[in-house]
């Protein structure tokens, strides 16, 4: 049995997350991946923004920083630049990272700073009660889209790819082994890496959109996940009803803090 307790602040439990929420699966996968990487707890800094996902930092025994809405990546950038030896992990959600914090997300990817972003995509603002997010699918209902969303959505992984991130992967909580594996690879990557994890919110998304309980939503994820390869052969209409999972990008490119160190070193006699 894997010993999760070593990494948890059990006194802070029970978790704030609702029954059927997928966030706990990501929490456990993340802990296993950190363990696999052999990071010491003292050398891990976990930074989060605001939202359901971002409450994760309260439950793990690392250096944990719960920041303001949308700004987790900026705080993390300051930490990584000041203390590059630390393993800096950002915990964020679809609203946090791509709505209010969208600018920081794409600029951190462009800059290629060595942060690992675990992006919980539940397609809704769960913490505030179910408002529409940049990833709420068109036609789906939210408290602020009572007749169904009229907008298009962000492809969160696509944003990071376009902005130049050297590691981008998407998976779902229906596949915890893959979540762990992708996070593991992201942690190893020297550069800005994103793991987008689709996670169901039965309470504020599922109920309103008749998607069923947590288990039903997990099943939906499992049945509708397709690999990047099979997605290539699918029509846009079919893709609308699917979650494309896999590693989109895994390349090496110069990391900004490492490059900046070269500037500093020029002045060392």
């Amino acid at each position: 049995m894997f010993d999760y307790d070593y990494y948890l602040r059990k006194s802070k439990m029970p978790l704030i997350w609702c029954p059927g929420c997928g966030d706990g699966i990501i929490l456990k996968s993340l802990i296993r991946a950190i363990h696999k990487n052999g990071f010491t707890k003292d050398n891990v800094v976990m930074v989060s923004g605001i939202g359901c996902s971002s409450r994760l930092t309260g439950y793990v025994d690392f250096n944990t920083l719960h920041t303001t809405h949308g700004r987790a990546i900026t705080f993390a950038t300051g930490i990584k630049l000041a203390k590059p030896h630390l393993n800096v992990i950002v915990i964020t959600g679809d609203g946090d990272a791509t709505s209010i914090g969208g600018n920081h997300y794409i600029h951190a990817a462009r800059r290629n700073i060595d942060l690992t972003v675990i992006l919980f995509n539940n397609q809704i603002y769960g913490m505030t009660g179910g408002q529409v997010s940049p990833t709420t699918p068109s036609g789906k209902k939210a408290t602020t889209a009572p007749y169904g969303s009229s907008e298009n959505i962000f492809n969160i992984s696509g944003l990071a790819i376009a902005a130049g991130a050297p590691f981008v992967a998407r998976t779902t909580v229906a596949n915890p082994v893959q979540v762990e594996r992708y996070i593991n690879l992201a942690l190893q990557k020297k550069g800005f890496s994103v793991v987008e994890v689709m996670t169901p919110c039965p309470t504020t998304f599922g109920r309103r959109n008749k998607a069923g309980a947590g288990v039903d939503m997990l099943k939906w994820q499992k049945e509708h996940s397709v690999t990047i390869k099979s997605a290539e052969k699918m029509s846009p209409l079919e893709l609308d009803e699917s979650i494309v999972t896999g590693i989109f990008v895994d390349i090496e490119k110069p990391e900004c803090r490492t490059e900046y160190q070269k500037v500093i070193d020029q002045f060392k006699s």
Binding site: T67, T74, T77, G78, I79, L81, K83, N103, H107
Partner: peptide
């Protein structure tokens, strides 16, 4: 917004 976030992060260390 990012500037002040970064200095708070750095100062914390």
């Amino acid at each position: 917004l990012a500037s002040i976030g970064a200095i708070i992060g750095a100062s914390l260390t």
